[in-house]
Measured scan of single mutants.
Amino acid sequence: MTEYKLVVVGAGGVGKSALTIQLIQNHFVDEYDPTIEDSYRKQVVIDGETCLLDILDTAGQEEYSAMRDQYMRTGEGFLCVFAINNTKSFEDIHHYREQIKRVKDSEDVPMVLVGNKCDLPSRTVDTKQAQDLARSYGIPFIETSAKTRQGVDDAFYTLVREIRKHKEKMSKDGKKKKKKSKTKCVIM
């Protein structure tokens, strides 16, 4: 069974824990209790493949930012979460993405942009803004509501699919490099 290491990042209060708990335990946590770091595991079937999701729910508070490099190193894919009623959390996505790329030393890291709290009427981040940002990053965008469960499975499952595509691409690139290195030079 394939294991996928997913990391949920975003500013404090955007609903990272609520999304994760909704996926794992099928219930909505409405009281806000700032996370330092929590880890969850769940076995699911995605596109006919049974897999184990190892999900790291991270601290959004700035005082825990020193811990970010460590979990970013171990993560295979990242859910970059903002709240649709919090423009600052949307603007912060850029910083999370840049930090992930720096730590992973790669421009090509599996990510999904997630606009959470889409059940709320007080939207300050337009869907088109988020779609445009995701398009500019070359990553999928999904709106979710941890409260109603809308888009929750889709967000995590899409990230797994992005990781699969990335692994497939990397193995193809690896095979191309191996083929090239088999060419021999004969000096007579």
Rank of each mutant, 00 (worst) to 15 (best):
Q70E: 14
G75C: 15
N116L: 15
C118A: 10
V114S: 01
K104G: 06
A66I: 11
H94L: 11
P110D: 02
V81L: 10
E107F: 14
T87V: 09
P110S: 03
Y64D: 15
V109H: 06
M111C: 06
I100S: 00
F82R: 01
D92F: 05
V112W: 01
S65W: 07
D69A: 05
E63I: 04
V112K: 00
D105F: 02
L113R: 00
G75L: 06
P121G: 13
G115K: 04
Y71N: 13
R123L: 11
E91F: 03
K117M: 15
H94S: 08
F82D: 00
T74E: 14
K88Q: 08
R73Q: 12
D126H: 08
M72W: 07
E107Y: 11
M111T: 04
Q99F: 14
E98N: 03
S122N: 10
C80V: 14
Q70T: 06
V112Y: 00
N116P: 00
H94D: 14
V112S: 01
K101T: 04
D126N: 10
G77W: 00
P121I: 09
K117T: 10
F82G: 15
T87W: 05
R123G: 14
V109K: 03
E76L: 14
Y71D: 13
F78H: 00
K88A: 10
T74P: 07
N86P: 00
G77L: 10
Y64L: 07
R102M: 08
D108T: 09
S89I: 09
V112H: 04
R97G: 04
F78W: 04
E76D: 15
D69H: 04
Y96S: 02
V125F: 12
E63W: 03
T74G: 12
G75M: 08
R123H: 12
E98L: 02
P110H: 04
P110G: 01
V109G: 02
G75F: 10
F82S: 13
T87F: 06
T124D: 13
R68D: 14
E63P: 09
R123E: 14
A83C: 04
G115N: 04
V114D: 02
I93P: 03
R68P: 14
L120F: 12
L113Y: 04
Y71H: 10
A83T: 05
D69I: 00
V114C: 07
D126R: 06
R73G: 12
C80K: 02
C118F: 11
G115Y: 05
C118H: 06
F78P: 00
R68L: 06
S106Q: 09
K88V: 04
Q99R: 08
M111K: 04
D108E: 11
G75S: 11
L79A: 03
Y71S: 11
D108F: 10
Y71C: 08
I93F: 08
D119L: 02
G77F: 14
V109C: 07
F78M: 01
K117N: 13
S89W: 04
F90W: 13
S122D: 14
E91I: 00
P110T: 03
K104N: 07
R73E: 14
T124K: 11
D69W: 01
V125L: 13
I100T: 01
Y64A: 15
F78G: 00
H95L: 05
K88C: 09
T124M: 12
R123K: 11
L113V: 05
F82I: 07
K117H: 14
Y96L: 15
S106R: 07
I84S: 15
G77T: 00
Q70K: 13
T124F: 10
K104W: 11
A66P: 13
F82L: 08
D119A: 01
F78T: 02
I84Y: 15
R73C: 11
C118L: 08
C80S: 02
Y71P: 11
T87E: 15
N86A: 03
D119Q: 02
D69L: 01
P121V: 09
E107L: 13
I100F: 06
C118W: 09
C80M: 14
V112G: 00
H95P: 00
R123V: 12
R102Q: 05
K88P: 03
D69K: 05
A66W: 03
V112Q: 00
V114F: 03
C80L: 14
F90R: 03
R68E: 14
V109M: 06
Y64H: 13
K88Y: 08
T74A: 13
D69Y: 03
F90N: 00
D119I: 01
S106E: 13
Q70G: 07
V112C: 01
D105N: 14
K101F: 14
S122F: 08
T87D: 11
G115F: 15
F90Q: 06
V112T: 01
V103E: 03
V114W: 01
F90G: 05
E107P: 06
E63K: 07
E91T: 01
E107N: 09
S65P: 13
R97M: 15
I84N: 15
F90A: 05
G77I: 12
H94R: 07
I93Y: 01
S106I: 11
Q99N: 02
R73D: 12
R68Y: 07
S89G: 05
G75R: 08
D126Y: 08
T124E: 14
N116S: 14
G75Q: 06
P110N: 03
E63T: 09
R73A: 11
D119C: 05
S122Q: 06
P110V: 03
G75A: 15
E107R: 06
L120R: 04
N116A: 15
D69T: 04
M67N: 10
V103L: 15
V114Y: 01
E76I: 14
D119M: 03
P110I: 02
K101Q: 12
L79K: 00
L113W: 06
Y71M: 14
F82N: 02
V114A: 03
C80F: 14
E63R: 06
L79V: 10
P121E: 14
D108L: 05
L120N: 01
V81W: 02
P121T: 12
K88F: 03
P121C: 06
R68K: 09
Y96V: 12
R102A: 07
K104S: 09
E107M: 08
R102L: 08
N116D: 05
Q99E: 12
G115I: 12
Y96G: 03
V81T: 07
K117G: 14
D105W: 11
D126T: 08
Q70H: 07
V81G: 02
Y96K: 05
V112I: 13
Y71G: 13
I100C: 02
D108M: 06
L120K: 06
D69N: 06
R73M: 08
L113M: 07
A66E: 13
A66K: 08
D126W: 08
I84A: 15
T74S: 13
C118V: 10
R68W: 07
D105M: 01
V125M: 12
A66S: 12
P121H: 08
D108Q: 08
G115A: 13
D119T: 03
K88G: 13
V103R: 04
H95G: 04
D105I: 03
F78N: 00
A83M: 03
I100H: 01
V109A: 03
I93W: 05
R102E: 09
G115E: 05
D119S: 04
A66R: 05
S65I: 07
N116G: 09
V112R: 00
D69R: 05
E98P: 01
K117P: 00
V112N: 01
I93R: 00
K101N: 07
N116K: 01
E76P: 01
G115M: 11
G75V: 15
A83V: 03
M72L: 11
D126Q: 10
L120V: 08
M72T: 09
S65D: 12
L113H: 02
P110W: 02
Y71V: 12
I84L: 15
F82V: 09
D108G: 07
R97L: 15
F90V: 14
M67Y: 05
R68F: 05
D105S: 04
S65E: 14
R102K: 03
D108A: 05
L120T: 08
E76Y: 10
D126V: 08
R97D: 02
N86W: 05
Y96P: 02
V81P: 03
R123C: 13
K101E: 07
I84T: 15
F78S: 02
R73V: 06
V109S: 03
S65Y: 06
Y71W: 08
K101R: 12
L113F: 13
R73I: 05
Q99C: 13
T124H: 13
F78A: 02
S122V: 10
E91C: 04
V109W: 04
G77K: 00
G75T: 14
H94G: 02
S106H: 08
K104F: 06
D126I: 07
